[in-house]
Amino acid sequence: MYPRPLADDAPFRRFAYTSMVVLILALWLVPLMAVMATSLRSFEEVMAGNYWGWPKSFNFIENYMAVFTQTAMARYFLNSLIVTLPSVFGVLVLSTLTGYVLSRYRFRGASLMFALFVGGNFLPAQIMMIPVRDLMVSIGLYDTYYALIVFHVAFQTGFATLFMRNFIAALPDELFQAARAEGASPWQTLWHVVLPLIRPALAALAILTFTFVWNDYFWAIVLTQSDAVKPVTAGLNNLRGEWVSAWNLVAAATILVAIPPVVMFFLMQRHFIAGLTVGAVKG
C-alpha cells in the first residue's frame, strides 16, 4: 500500500492524522454546509444576509414542504428519473458493445472510429445545439422524454466507449484465446466472459453517467418546453426566477436535487472504485 500505512501502535499519530483529515474535510465542505444551513433559515434571516452563520431558527419542514407544495418539483423529479434511468441503461449497453469491438477486433478504420468517439466527447455541447434541436424536431421527438434520452445516450456513449474500451482491453488475452479455442461465438464470449468481468466498470460508468445526465441543464432547456417532460435542473432554475430572493427555498430545492446522485453514489461507492481501478491497470 502507498503511502505506507500508519503504524497500529502509534495511537497518537493516528489520532493526529485523523483529526487533520477531518479538518481538511470540514474546510472542503464549507460551501455545501452553507447551502444546507441556508435551506433551514427563515426568509427574514436570508433577507438580513445571514448566509454563513448558524441558523437562527430551523425551518426544515416549512422550507422543504414549500418546495413540493408550491411548485411542480415532484413532477420534475419524476421526469428526471424517466429521462436518466433509460439513458444510463442505453449508454451501458451501447458502450459495452462498442468498447468490446474496438478493444478486441482489429479492423481498418478502428482507430479512426475510436478517435471519433473520443473526439466527439470533447466537443462543447453548444456546438451541436441548433442541428440537434432541428434533428429532434424533424423526427418528431422535440419536447418529449425521448429527445433527451436519445441525445444523452448518443453523447455519453462517446465517453463511455473510451472507458469501456480501456477496461476491456485490460482484460487478459488468455481468457479470449481460451474462449476462441472452445469455439465460443462473439456473442457468447461477450455474454459469458466479458460481461461478468466488467460489472464493476458498469457500476462506475452507471454512476458517472447518472450524474452527468441528472445534472444536465443546457439540453433540458434546448430540447424541452412543457412542464410535463422538463427535468429537475430546469425546474430548479425556474424556482430561482420565481423565488426572487427566497434563497432559503432555493437552497432547499438545491439540496433535494442533489440527493439522488449522492445516494446513488453512496450505494455503489465500493463498486465504483473497483470499476475505475481495473481499467487503469494493465498486464
Binding site: 485490460a170 460489472r199 458498469l202 457500476a203 450505494l267 481495473v278
Partner: peptide
C-alpha cells in the same frame, strides 16, 4: 490483474443485483 479479477468476480452478485434493479 487476474488476482483482481477474482476479487471482482466474488463481488459480482451485489453489483448484478444493483444493475438489474436499474
Amino acid at each position: 490483474a487476474s488476482n483482481d479479477m477474482i476479487k471482482l468476480v466474488t463481488r459480482a452478485p451485489a453489483s448484478r443485483r444493483q444493475f438489474l434493479i436499474g
